[in-house]
Design a protein around this nucleic acid. Structure first.
Lengths: 207, 207
DNA sequence: TCACTATGTTACCGACCAGTAACATCAGAG
DNA sequence: CTCTGATGTTACTGGTCGGTAACATAGTGA
């Protein structure tokens, strides 16, 4: 799998696999080192503590998601609605990775109650960034209530992530995309009647 | 707080408090017993293991939620839409309890990777039951695509639960209710255009 | 008073785990 | 070849934690 790589990356790959499957607290550093084809000492030569390893793992996951987002932006320039839809599509596809154990980000959040854990900062910033980008897109799309629509997308996405364990993957992905599409008005550019402002404008393509 | 109660209930109350605040793995049985004003031995005389204590704690939470649901049904007989709305309202209010640490159910799910953990069965059954009841209500309300609408409600609710940590409680609760209302058509009895079946019927009051 | 039951107290075991020390090995650069 | 830096190996520490044994205490009902 990751044979030729330097030990640091093998360790991160092994940690990714084990943390996803057994949770953070459920995996010891020894097991990670062994799965990486190395040992505890080299692990500690590359990461100053298990907590730092966790944080670095999270940074990898988060930066990968950010990269996806950037791709979406450059794939649909000046079309915020298409960006939202496409990004949601990617997120829906990513659900497949987490059918058994749920989102590693949400799980990490649950497994790390200490608010000053180094990985917590990574997660919190990432979620804030993601929500901000969504809000900006909703504003660019000139939805009548961008905060509301952004929250709605966010709730749906996060809800799908935490339901993929208990409902089947296929149905979650399908329903999620239909809901996102209808909400964001990809088909007809209408907002679902929300709150009481049923005045959908055609989305103007900004930026 | 729970002074006069028998030790078993004091233990459960202490576990509830500590598990919510510090997570399951983050709290030892000794700490629970001490917080309950007793000791480890009596704890083990009432619960055969920590895992069983966790499961019993979950049973308590789940049965409380089931009770809320039953209340809703008898409060709005023959009006499935009102039941959905009212139940969502209760759920939104329950968000306040979990602003800092999120939903104890979702957290437990993340902290218990072993699929055969006794608490897992409790959680899985509860979520399935909740989704089923929602689906039945959507069918009774004669929404054109009851599965879709039920999933939408479910995603929104679960999403709100997992976002209450990163977005403010007040906004989450408000937006959640506005979305549920608009979706379920409490005001006007229309479904948001979903999927492609824009044929909302007035909900017939069943049962 | 006696006996029974629930609870408190202390001490302990065994397992696991994060992290470190000391030393051996091996590869490449000069 | 030799020096050097990165890696492997082994063994260890200190701490935590789930779970148990053995004994002491207190209340209760007959």
């Amino acid at each position: 799998m990751s044979e030729g790589l330097p030990p640091r990356q093998r360790i991160l790959a092994a940690a990714d696999d084990l943390f996803r499957r057994h949770g953070i607290r459920g995996v010891g550093v020894e097991a990670i080192a062994e799965a990486a084809g190395t040992n505890k000492m080299t692990l500690y030569r590359h990461f100053e503590s298990k907590d730092e390893l966790i944080a670095e793992w999270m940074r990898g996951i988060v930066s990968q998601k950010d990269r996806v987002w950037d791709e979406m932006v450059e794939r649909h320039p000046n079309d915020p609605v298409a960006q939202i839809v496409d990004w949601s599509q990617r997120t829906a596809e990513a659900l497949a990775q987490m059918e058994e154990r749920g989102s590693p980000i949400l799980n990490a959040l649950a497994e790390l109650p200490e608010p000053d854990h180094p990985a917590r900062k990574v997660i919190d910033e990432h979620r804030a960034r993601e929500h901000d980008r969504l809000l900006i897109l909703c504003q660019q799309a000139e939805f009548p209530e961008p905060e509301l629509t952004a929250d709605q997308c966010f709730f749906l996405l996060e809800g799908a992530k935490s339901c993929v364990q208990c409902i089947g993957l296929k149905r979650v992905g399908e329903h999620l995309m239909r809901l996102i599409n209808s909400m964001v008005g990809a088909r007809g550019r209408e907002l679902p009647a929300a709150g009481g402002s049923p005045a959908p404008k055609p989305a103007r393509r900004t930026r």
